[in-house]
Amino acid sequence: MNSLAAPQRWEKIFWPLVATALLLLLWHFSVIWSGTKIFPSPRDVGRGMLELFRHHVLWADIRDSVRRVLIGFGIAAVLGIPMGLLLGWYPAANQVVNPVMQILRPISPIAWIPVAIIFFGIGDRAAVFLIFLGSFFPIVVACINGVSNVPSVFRRAGRNFGLTPMQLLTRVVFPAALPQILVGLRIALGIAWLVVVAAEMIAVDSGLGYLVIDSRNSGKRYDLVIAAILLIGVIGLILDLIFRSLERLKPLRWGFRNVA
């Protein structure tokens, strides 16, 4: 393959398939050669996955995990976007809030698990709270940056056409910042998906995270553990792909490079 030539259609599918197959082979033979009794082979995991699907628990777990993520992420977006826009719009307010935010932001949402359990007990709401915490700050920060990076020509043009400050925010600043806001939302969704698994291992008794920990605890079923882990990866990828497809919308596409 020439790195300058655009890859053919079949190549785009073919080579990743080859890489995946090689990885599966490596895994398969590593299990055989190392003689491990605990770690499952790809075939065991495949059987485990079928078993999970057949017993119908899997769909409920997927549904629970996705529901928690959508609620926590949704609340974070609904609160975070207006807050970020206003903080970006009023730098004075941002200076007041910024120190607190910079302290809260690097804290892993996992560290909040004990606090979440005090507030909400064991259950959905604790998990949703953790997901909210994990996705709120990236959204706010992306909005602040998005607003402050809006080129001044756009603001000036808006003022020149006689917009009020509120109209300027909704008709110029928001659409101009939208590509960056979208990037922030996408990062936040990725974090939300990471957090839900951790939260479900501790704070609730359903969902894919719970499935991982439960498969290990009840009978050391590592085939099911790995199956659940792979599913987490695939669903995370699907969520991300759905979000990336938004980047192709025409009123947004100008803000992204390398999007055909």
Binding site: F154, A176, L178
Partner: peptide
């Protein structure tokens, strides 16, 4: 005020 073509709204 007309800027160079950078002033049109890309969205």
């Amino acid at each position: 005020f007309v800027f160079q073509e950078r002033g049109v709204f890309p969205w």
